[in-house]
């Protein structure tokens, strides 16, 4: 069961992410759509935070804003000392490389590259040397139990294996925060449990992770759960 339910971070560890009144409004024709309304939250280092909510509630928008994939309409988000909403567009890729790791529902691996090369890819853009890239990517995949699948292409891997490659890629640059958007949405329950175990293990080692999920069984395993309804973060305990 989660320790804390709500928008405030638990005690003890330092706050790594602080979001204040973060909102995103876009125009659908002439009608403004409020995808996220004044979201506030704090996340401590090493937390495994679940965000739940119905489809279209704003979960993915929150992740996109935290991942600098979309521009906020208002508010602030301070991640590991960096004000995300004020990062110029030109510097956003650097923030994504150094501070954030993404895990997607559909794994989003490059189909023409092997598991090892997919993980290496994230390091390539950071200017890491070829030798170090290989070593780090290999170590990560071995840690995630994919030591014997290094040269396999995504199509030769199971859904669970692909998601673990995706997690390894997200971890490659040792980010401050991992954003996982429905990471278990495409896998069976056994694989789902193994992915959750990976997240929990990473969290125990100090990795901060925000997981957007529809699955209460995933949320149950997280250290804290937030619920978003109609673009607002609520503190309701039911999920």
């Amino acid at each position: 069961m989660p320790d804390i339910i709500g928008g405030e971070a638990g005690p003890e560890k330092e706050i790594i992410l602080k979001v204040e009144n973060l909102s995103r409004t876009y125009m659908q024709g002439k009608v403004p759509v409020h995808a996220l309304r004044s979201a506030c939250l704090e996340v401590r280092k090493g937390e495994l935070l679940a965000i739940m909510g119905p489809s279209g509630s704003g979960k993915s928008t929150l992740l996109a804003l935290l991942g600098t994939l979309e521009k906020a309409s208002g508010g602030k988000a301070l991640l590991d000392g960096v004000e995300l909403t004020e990062v110029p567009e030109k510097l956003q890729p650097r923030i994504r490389r150094e501070k954030i790791g993404f895990v997607f529902q559909h794994y989003n691996l490059i189909p023409t590259l092997s598991a090892l090369e997919n993980v290496e890819l994230a390091l390539r853009f950071s200017g890491v040397s070829k030798k170090e890239r290989k070593e780090r990517a290999k170590a990560l995949l071995e840690e995630l139990g994919l030591g014997d699948r290094l040269t396999h292409k995504p199509t030769e891997l199971s859904g669970g294996e692909q998601q673990r490659v995706s997690i390894a890629r997200a971890l490659a640059n040792r980010p401050a925060l991992i954003l996982a958007d429905e990471p278990t949405g495409e896998v069976d329950t056994k694989t789902r449990d193994s992915i959750v175990r990976v997240f929990k293990s990473l969290s125990e080692k100090g990795q901060t992770i925000i997981v957007v999920t529809h699955d209460p069984d995933v949320a149950k395993e997280c250290s804290r759960v937030l619920r978003i309804v109609d673009g607002r973060i609520s503190d309701r305990k039911d999920f």
């Binding site: 994939l69 989003n108 994230a122």
Partner: peptide, 16 residues
């Protein structure tokens, strides 16, 4: 298109 999105999400710059 999706591949380019992935590359950008993992930190590829416009020049890359």
């Amino acid at each position: 298109t999706r591949e380019f999105g992935i590359l950008k999400a993992i930190g590829a710059e416009t020049k890359d």
